[in-house]
């Protein structure tokens, strides 16, 4: 078994809101091995983004221990990259300059950064748009650029927070397939957050199922489907069996939460 690269131990996060304290994340523990692709799935508001932001170093302080590569996360680090639900591309930079931004910030020369950017532009198939500004691209293309931009610093860990959540169904399945392809070519550990169970099983080596109020991990499920995969796998009996397991779990958890809230 490969060594652990991400370790989350007893992570709890409480937010102060005008309505009182909200336990967003409640004693969450898991670890991710080097090279693994892990999906976190759960209903919206269950704390998925909060967990991911903590691993990113964007959410401090927290109680518990969160380490990447053995070092605690207190602030963003270039070896941990992130793709958000919105592309958040710099509107004043061309596609190439957006992708080159990270390497430039890490002290690479203009020409080195440009070479890195051009390589990634090739990989995401946007050669024709290298000099285009973000607002001229479709949502799917923008998100490709955001992924390339995050990869430009060659992070050891890539965090993705519902990156395809804002795209239409058709674009989304194209993006899923290209992410599967991309993954064969890059050497990064991925934690991918989604509320879509199909997406989670399709992409992941392991699925962590979270429940809401307070955010907890219900189940840690291995996905033993052969790779390389594509959207076609969604008709595979093994895939369907896994999906049924997940749905049963989520349904019974939903019923429990409902009974609890009606009783209380």
């Amino acid at each position: 078994m490969a060594r652990t690269i991400i370790s989350v131990a007893d992570l709890s996060i409480v937010f102060d809101t005008p309505q009182g304290q909200v336990i967003a994340v409640d004693r969450v523990t898991f670890s991710v091995a080097h090279g693994e692709f892990v999906c976190i799935v759960g209903p919206s508001g269950c704390g998925k983004s909060t967990v991911l932001n903590t691993i990113a170093g964007l959410e401090t302080p927290y109680s518990g221990a969160v380490t990447v590569d053995g070092r605690p996360m207190q602030r963003p680090r270039p070896d941990v990259g992130m793709v958000f639900q919105q592309p958040h591309l710099f509107p004043w930079k061309s596609v190439r300059k957006n992708i080159a931004h990270g390497p430039r910030m890490l002290g690479k020369s203009r020409s080195e950064a440009r070479a890195i950017a051009d390589g990634l532009i090739e990989m995401i198939g946007l050669n024709r748009f290298a000099d285009a500004y973000p607002h001229t691209l479709s949502g799917g293309m923008q998100q490709r650029v955001a992924i390339a931009r995050a990869l430009a610093n060659q992070p050891r860990v890539l965090l993705m927070d519902e990156p395809f959540g804002a795209l239409d169904a058709q674009t989304r399945s194209v993006m899923q397939d290209s992410l599967l392809e991309l993954r064969e070519r890059i050497d990064a550990t991925v934690v991918f957050v989604t509320h879509d169970i199909d997406e989670a099983i399709l992409l992941a080596d392991r699925v962590l199922i979270m429940s809401a109020g307070p955010g907890r991990i219900l189940r840690d499920l291995g996905v033993d489907l052969p790779r390389p995969r594509s959207n076609a796998i969604m008709l595979d009996p093994a895939y369907l069996a896994l999906k049924k397991d997940c749905l049963d779990l989520i349904r019974s958890e939903g019923r429990r939460a409902f009974d609890q809230s009606s009783a209380g």
């Binding site: 990113a56 964007l58 602030r75 963003p76 680090r77 270039p78 941990v80 990259g81 992130m82 958000f84 919105q86 958040h88 591309l89 710099f90 004043w92 931004h101 990270g102 910030m105 890490l106 955001a146 931009r149 995050a150 430009a152 610093n153």
Partner: peptide, 25 residues
Amino acid sequence: DRGLIRAALMLGTPRRQMLQEIVLL
């Protein structure tokens, strides 16, 4: 846009560049 700032933070943008590039633009 806070999202731009977070994206820039994740890419290792130092304080000074953050002010000069992201915030000012």
